[in-house]
Design a protein around this nucleic acid. Sequence first.
DNA 1: AGCTATATATAATG
DNA 2: CATTATATATAGCT
Lengths: 203, 203
Amino acid sequence: MEERRMLQEQQQEEAHGHGGKEEEGKRRKKRGKVELRRIEDRTSRQVRFSKRRSGLFKKAFELSVLCDVEVALIVFSPAGRLYPFVSSESSVEEIFGRCRHLPNTIDLNIEVRDPRVDHDIQIDLNEQAAPDPLSDLNHFADWILEIDVNSMGMAELRRFEEIVSDALTVIKNNLRMKVSQLTQTERNPQEKANNLSSQESEE
Amino acid sequence: MEERRMLQEQQQEEAHGHGGKEEEGKRRKKRGKVELRRIEDRTSRQVRFSKRRSGLFKKAFELSVLCDVEVALIVFSPAGRLYPFVSSESSVEEIFGRCRHLPNTIDLNIEVRDPRVDHDIQIDLNEQAAPDPLSDLNHFADWILEIDVNSMGMAELRRFEEIVSDALTVIKNNLRMKVSQLTQTERNPQEKANNLSSQESEE
DNA sequence: AGCTATATATAATG
DNA sequence: CATTATATATAGCT
């Protein structure tokens, strides 16, 4: 039964010092469990977001199919990116329109909608494959120029420095990676072109 | 490990039906698993709907809290009843309203909501949260992490590096300036307080 | 990005 | 509506 697992868990809870890749008396966070509060670590939050977002969309999709109901789901990423999902052929506008006459009093004896609608829903869960970073990049550039740094306090400035500094590190790493990729595929012009389809190559 | 359970399952599968999985419906369906298609039995479908709906809403809520993002979810029950969920203070109208503006090209404003540039929809019920200055920074930080660097070409990466690098320089300069101002006015508590009283956001 | 241990969700059942 | 066996989802790692 489950007793075994439960017991195991209990033991680990009580004394986590045996049986596996146990380090030492540090309260290692148990896997899976998480507090219901904003995740402070940016990286972690980002990762969680990606994973949970997919999970959520999958669930939404399943619900719409299994129960033959209409579902509209919209998520704004931390960066403000839009992730929409709408079951059926309805458009976001349509769903939205139906929400307008949202009665405060819910009427209970509704029977129906479409009796025999057996549409085969084909929704691509992998939306937005090409977010076009170029526009974001330009946007960021503009933003940087317009910021009134003088209106910022010390705390903000320091944080800003930290963030931008980190960002720069990330970018440089990526640049290095890219360059090394280029070097490696130097002898494969086709692949190279494939990977860098965007625009120009290295210098 | 899980192997044990998996094995068990395999064996059951073999023992019950050999030759294919086409013969469902006769043997007892395994728990938990379900095909991704409309549930024909009305009662069953209704039950599933209730359970999955709550699950979905729970997930949506968790996502919004854990990752600090906006989520809007709307479900129409088979009976046509409306089940809405919107994270934060925003109204359904607002969320969907924002969707209408955004084409397929993503571009959210890192520069954030400007009260004056308010969108078409007016919300009188809720007051828009304070334009937290840190919000911009956080958004930027998130954005950095979310960018798909692989989709960027060398040119973009280089440009990005340049921009961010410049930004960092500016920030450092400003920091130095700020610090020196503080030092100089050390003996003038009033002025000092004046310069710093700007904001105190913390989170 | 994959992987594994846990945690959750939930389909069938009582 | 509670329970329980399974199936999924996903947190922490690597």
